[in-house]
């Protein structure tokens, strides 16, 4: 493996790991707080991608503005779905899981109906263009910037959950909703907040990767599924576990793709998941934090 290949694989691993963590964090927060298994979570990622395509590529808005706009819209949509569909089934995993399957079908088909099944390209913003040379290896500036933003968001979320009052409330509700409401916390509001944060993070991931990959109605399928693999591998409810598992999967995909091909890399991810579950049925950190 040449240096160039190694560095490229490294960048790709961190990139796909980071994007996965962004999606999976929301998933695990929602699952922890509301006990809602949201199979439609990957669709927020897809909608974020379409948002950036629509506002930035189609209507020529400034990239940052387009990102904020599309992320906010998806966040509002997420809260609306939480209020309208998931709220009655809080604490009840099976009905919410089934409802989320319905939402997934509707979203995917609706975008397909509106924008067609073709891939839409999102141009790279001017500021992201170009390469950076680091000790003989060329790195895409775009990917590095996306990685930086992703890492900043992950750290930001971690700080938010561990050190702010709202984060404390989120952890308290996910630990014991009845006791939390006795402390004056509104379970309704915290649930909506969790859904808002979750859908915003997924949409942000969609916006950031839009220019790197393509935007299409089925783009949420694979990351949505992988995000589940991440949270199960890391242990449901564990933020640290999610980060570790996301990076593990990112590295398997990033480094496995070149010698074996992407499909075999994905096979390896699933095999790792199944083997982990044999020895640690609650995931890597499932017991420690939950």
């Amino acid at each position: 493996m040449t240096l160039q290949m190694f560095v490229q694989s490294l960048i790709n691993s961190i990139l796909s790991g980071g994007v996965l963590i962004l999606i999976a964090m929301g998933l695990t927060i929602i699952l922890g707080i509301m006990k809602v298994v949201n199979f439609a979570h990957g669709e927020f990622y897809m909608l974020g991608g379409f948002g950036i395509w629509w506002f930035f590529a189609e209507h020529g808005l400034n990239f940052v503005l387009a990102l904020i706009l599309s992320v906010t819209l998806v966040g509002i949509l997420g809260v609306a779905i939480e209020r309208g569909l998931f709220k009655p089934f809080r604490e009840n995993a099976f009905p919410s899981l089934i409802i989320s399957c319905g939402i997934l079908l509707v979203f995917r088909a609706a975008t397909q109906l509106s924008f067609g099944l073709v891939d839409h390209a999102v141009p790279t913003p001017e500021a992201f263009k170009g390469m950076i040379q680091v000790s003989g290896a060329f790195l895409s500036k775009e990917r590095l910037i996306v990685i930086c933003i992703t890492l900043a968001l992950i750290i930001g979320l971690y700080v938010f959950i561990k050190f702010t009052k709202a984060g404390l409330a989120m952890r308290a509700v996910s630990d014991n909703p009845a006791a939390a409401s006795l402390q004056g916390m509104s379970v309704d509001r915290i649930s909506s907040l969790a859904f808002f944060i979750g859908s915003v993070l997924a949409a942000t991931a969609g916006c950031l990767t839009g220019p790197i990959f393509y935007v299409s109605p089925t783009m949420g399928a694979e990351p949505g599924l992988m995000a589940f693999v991440v949270i199960v591998l890391g242990g449901i409810g564990s933020i640290t576990g999610t980060v570790i598992a996301g990076l593990i999967i990112g590295f398997i995909e990033g480094f496995g793709a070149i010698p074996f091909g992407t499909n075999y890399a994905t096979v390896m991810v699933y095999v790792v998941l199944l083997i982990t579950l044999i020895f640690k049925p609650m995931g890597l950190l499932g017991h420690a934090e939950k």
Partner: peptide
Amino acid sequence: IKEIYFAIATLALNEL
């Protein structure tokens, strides 16, 4: 393993 984990493990299995 618990229900949610099982559902997701089967998802992974289908893809596998």
